[in-house]
């Protein structure tokens, strides 16, 4: 029972983290029609910034805030310097160009921070276990991630659905030319959306950093997961991204936690212990393949045109 609740919460936490990453990706994709493989690099930069700033300032929170700002700025610079010129081009061009950016970011990080990973230690007040149910404790930090991510999701929802900028973003997603013709500064809007996406990716990276080590290439695996999520959820749909992210987070975490035991009932011990990790990694891709075969446009296709 304890294990089930704990793994369930871990799944939720991972799913919410994935949502932060996928939300930025799906916004950029839905509005600018840009396939940004370098989104994972922004996630990685968020983690590196946080580790560096936290070490400088000596405070986890201050470091996290500075890192958030830094990824926002980095995203805006990246958009204005390079990606802006890719809008309206073929998706393949996006893949190629942002693939180049991944190479660049990985190498830049190796040059600046060295090949060894960094650690981002947590302050003492975030490491205590918190009782969530009678007799069940859960790490405060993971709980904090859940709370922060839910808060961000709520803010994002309110921002997109209830504010003027959000209205422009939605309008941009459904008809780009039209809102340009109505006199909206699209360039500025695009830069803003990209910066927002970058900041969300950075937030995901810096929150994940204390759990895993901060290392080169950390953004790539999770980027693929984020892509899986937006494809399952339907490209351009934040609601779809949210539900798909929770779903994928759960499937991945619960699969990793319980599949080895399940397999051991069927297979011999040695075979099960090697097959289980591979099988649980496959689970998500299998899920995506099934979804795409049944619903080729994803579960919640954003209404296009």
């Amino acid at each position: 029972m304890l294990l089930v609740v704990e793994q369930f919460l871990n799944g939720l936490q991972f799913g919410l983290l994935l949502f932060l990453l996928a939300a930025g990706l799906t916004l950029v994709f839905g509005i600018m029609d840009l396939v940004n493989l370098a989104h994972g690099s922004l996630y990685m930069m968020g983690a590196y910034f946080a580790a560096t700033f936290a070490a400088w300032t000596g405070s986890f929170l201050l470091g996290a805030l500075l890192a958030l700002g830094a990824t926002l700025v980095l995203g805006i610079v990246l958009e204005m310097g390079a990606l802006r010129h890719l809008y309206g081009r073929d998706h393949l061009d996006h893949v190629l160009a942002t693939f180049g950016l991944i190479l660049f970011f990985n190498e830049a990080v190796r040059l600046i921070w060295g090949p060894a990973g960094l650690a981002l230690p947590l302050p003492a007040w975030l490491t205590v276990p918190v009782p969530i149910l009678p007799g069940i404790h859960y790490p405060a930090y993971r709980l904090a991630i859940i709370v922060v991510a839910l808060l961000v999701a709520l803010l994002l929802y309110l921002g997109v659905m209830r504010t003027r900028i959000g209205m422009l973003i939605r309008a941009g997603a459904s008809n780009r030319e039209m809102i340009g013709a109505l006199g909206i500064n699209i360039k500025l809007l695009y830069t803003l959306v990209f910066g927002l996406g970058a900041a969300l990716a950075g937030l995901a990276g810096l929150m994940q950093a204390p759990i895993l080590t901060v290392q080169i290439g950390m953004g790539e695996n999770i980027l693929i997961l984020a892509f899986v999520i937006i494809v399952i959820g339907g490209i351009g749909s934040i609601r779809g991204a949210f539900l798909a992210a929770i779903f994928v987070g759960m499937v991945d975490t619960l699969g990793r936690a319980f599949l080895p035991n399940l397999l051991r009932q069927v297979l011999s011990g040695a075979a099960a212990s090697t097959a289980a990790p591979a099988l649980s990694s496959m689970l998500i891709y299998l899920l995506m393949a099934i979804v795409l075969v049944v619903r080729p446009e994803g579960l919640f296709p954003a209404n296009r045109r």
């Binding site: 494809v231 591979a278 080729p296």
Partner: peptide
């Protein structure tokens, strides 16, 4: 995969390749 098109096709082929990758990793 051919049931989908565009970016979805790019992503589903990627997903299958990743599955193949994990199958190979699991071949003890």
């Amino acid at each position: 995969s051919l049931r989908t098109r565009g970016v979805y096709f790019i992503m589903i082929t990627l997903a299958f390749a990743q599955m193949a990758y994990y199958v190979a990793s699991g071949l003890a």
